[in-house]
Amino acid sequence: MEIQGHTNQTITILQKRKRKPLGVGKVILYTFMAIIGFLQIFPLLWLFNYSLLKSGDFFGDTIFQLPSPPQWGNYVSAFTQGNVLPYFFNSVLVTFVSVALTAFVSILLAYAFTRMKWRFSALFMNIILLGMMIPIHATLLPNFIIFNEIGLLNSYWALILPYTAFNIPISMFIVTGFMETIPRSIEEAAVIDGASIWKILFKIIFPITKPAIATISVVNFINCWNEFIMAYTFNTMDQFKTLPFSIVQFVGQYSSNYGAQFAVMSLIAIPSIIMYLIFTDEINKGLMAGSVKG
């Protein structure tokens, strides 16, 4: 599309520039950016480094010390004592279903708000956007009461439904922004061909909206993956617990196994990073198009 054209052009311009010898400005720029980059990536290095330290090394005088020898046993403890594998499966299940459900629902909503003509469209959209402002903690107890009444406690749905609900407003907001940029002429042609709304939505709009979907999916993935307060509250049985519970096994009052604690945290961080790395281009495309309209 048009957007892609721009990026390609930028890249060719940048490539042309690259052949020139490095100027003083560039050296300063690269040094500066390297420092900034280091500051930002530091926690990650720190995390992995600490996950390989002996607990005793944590309180040294330096904040960064190389493990010698690396304590891979920390990861073994994490797996055995932290119940990492079953919780990992639960986390994957809950996160993926929440993310997919959020994406699906958000597309439907966004389409209704950008294309369909109905009286309460603007009002409805604003009400949904209000959802962004609701603090999670205000809904903890009411939701527990509701789940208890309808027998949803201790099930995957007890996490999937609230996760989806809290992710919908911002997701719909981003997808709506993106859909605004899609020219209506595409659909007009399809309508003349006699296509139904559903056909248009899934065969034409959905493929074009993919970058926006990737954006919201990664953001939602990170949110769901790291969420712990609802997970503590709505689930009690081992069978349904998610990964953040593994940290609890180690941060316990009577436990000083810092190494294993950080090993668990590393294990939790890795999937988020992989997700981001895979979808990084898509995310930018999604945000970019959203920005044109705002």
């Binding site: 279903v97 099930s155 995957y156 749905w157 959905f206």
Partner: peptide
């Protein structure tokens, strides 16, 4: 798309099964 729908469906069924087990 079909593949995605099927896999979502499959997941939902797994979920439903898990629920009913718990119940």
């Amino acid at each position: 798309r079909l593949l995605m729908l099927v896999s979502i469906l499959a997941l939902s069924i797994t979920l439903a099964a898990c629920n009913s087990n718990a119940k």
